[in-house]
């Protein structure tokens, strides 16, 4: 199993330049909004802003930074839709915090670890969104394990590929 327990001193902490910090989430939001016009099923299965949130959180290994990154990306994603602002914000805040906390304790640099972490956080994200939307906003939602796991696997696979591309922008602290 590629996930190994390490001490905080053993894991490497990365940072990113300002253009990358702002540009990559914006690009993810832009692609997420544009691709469904040509490939309608894309928005139903893939969540690029979530993958970017997980990547930044895992690389920085700082829970505060992770939760703020998640909150900001989630809130902008909310603003592009017509639902109440805060649904994606809350879900991605939890994911950002969780992924960075996990990054502190575990080595999540290998493809297998990244795949499993992304799958798990996709399901957590969906569960938090579903709960908040259902309980706080009274939105009609349908929960499907089959759909969730399928979409989670798809996102995990896409995530592993995207993380390899984004690794180029990492800078050692």
């Amino acid at each position: 199993m590629p996930i190994t327990y390490t001490s905080g001193e053993q894991v490497e902490v990365y940072r990113f330049s300002i253009p990358v910090t702002i540009g990559v989430p914006l690009l993810a939001l832009f692609i997420q909004a544009f691709i469904p016009l040509r490939f309608p099923g894309f928005a139903a299965y893939f969540d690029l802003p979530l993958l970017v949130t997980i990547f930044f959180a895992m690389a920085r290994r700082n829970p505060i930074s992770g939760l703020f990154t998640g909150a900001l990306i989630g809130l902008v994603q909310d603003m592009l839709g017509h639902n109440k602002i805060g649904l994606y914000g809350i879900a991605k805040t939890v994911v950002g915090y969780g992924a960075s906390s996990l990054g502190v304790k575990l080595d999540v640099e290998t493809a297998g670890a990244r795949f499993l972490v992304t799958l798990a956080f996709y399901l957590i994200h969906s569960a938090v969104y579903f709960t908040v939307a259902h309980e706080l906003v009274s939105m009609t939602q349908q929960w499907s394990w089959r759909y969730g796991i399928l979409a989670g696997l798809g996102n995990a696979l896409l995530g592993v590929l995207i993380y390899y591309g984004l690794d180029r922008f990492k800078q050692r602290t």
């Binding site: 505060i64 939760l67 809350i90 805040t93 939890v94 908040v132 706080l136 906003v137």
Partner: peptide
Amino acid sequence: RNLSILVGILFLQVLGLAVQV
């Protein structure tokens, strides 16, 4: 500290949602 900030940020967003609702 980290957990407190998480709870604070989540609380603010829930509050914002409640106001919108």
